[in-house]
Design a protein around this nucleic acid. Structure first.
Lengths: 118, 118
DNA sequence: CATAATACTGTGTCTGTCAAGGTATATTCA
DNA sequence: TGAATATACCTTGACAGACACAGTATTATG
């Protein structure tokens, strides 16, 4: 993870760990607010929904899920797969929905302020 | 520094360390691209320009300045104050200007992607 | 003359991201 | 058949940025 500002050579914009930081939980809550999902599925869905522009790393997702569950913003349960790998599903809680609304408001706010300054 | 999602009670949006992270250098470069400035002035200017919505902490600013100088994106020189506290001025370099353009592009890119996902 | 504002700096802590590694099952295809 | 790939989960440890806290020195204010 390099925090050094990329050299000018690299013209293609990118999403650094530092820029995405603080948005992972909101992104996960956003998906779970639509339907229950399992971890691997969350990663793949984010990749698709971002039009292949952003790939959430598995380690990052699982640490986010652990954090959200500890805060009671999501709960989890094992799926009943008869074949294939077992799947652990996550469901958003009512508090999770409220936190998600707060995250969205914070994002709109941050966008406004950063746009003022950049 | 709490990374816990704020309780719903706190309705007022806020800019967390994690959301601002990765934008500090860009904000500093933005100011210096207009004119040379000294540290304390940078802090105060950001506070004003953000309409009192964001206050850059001094420790954060100085670590950013050290980082930017180490990357040759800015240079510094002592002002010639005959009275008052000494002031250390910072000036953006040509590489700094290019890096700033990259930062802006990255920000526009990140905004787009996060909006897709949140 | 105490307090606040200006102006700079250093040290140490905290936290989220993620690289790297691991396990196990299912599918593909040469 | 068996090697490779995709699916699906998990852990550990390192790293770097933000910033709380502490400290120094000067000037203005009431």
């Amino acid at each position: 993870m390099s925090h050094i500002i990329a050299p000018v050579m690299a013209l293609k914009p990118s999403i650094s760990s530092d820029i995405i930081r603080g948005h992972i939980d909101a992104i996960v809550l956003a998906l779970l607010s639509k339907e229950d999902m399992y971890g691997y599925q969350i990663c793949k869905t984010i990749y698709q929904k971002s039009q292949q522009l952003y790939e959430l790393k598995e380690a990052t997702l699982y640490s986010s899920l652990r954090r959200l569950e500890a805060q009671d913003l999501i709960t989890s349960y094992w799926g009943d797969e008869v074949q294939g790998s077992r799947r652990k599903y996550y469901r958003i809680t009512p508090q999770g929905r409220e936190a998600y609304e707060k995250c969205k408001a914070d994002w709109e706010f941050a966008k406004k302020v950063i746009d003022m300054l950049i």
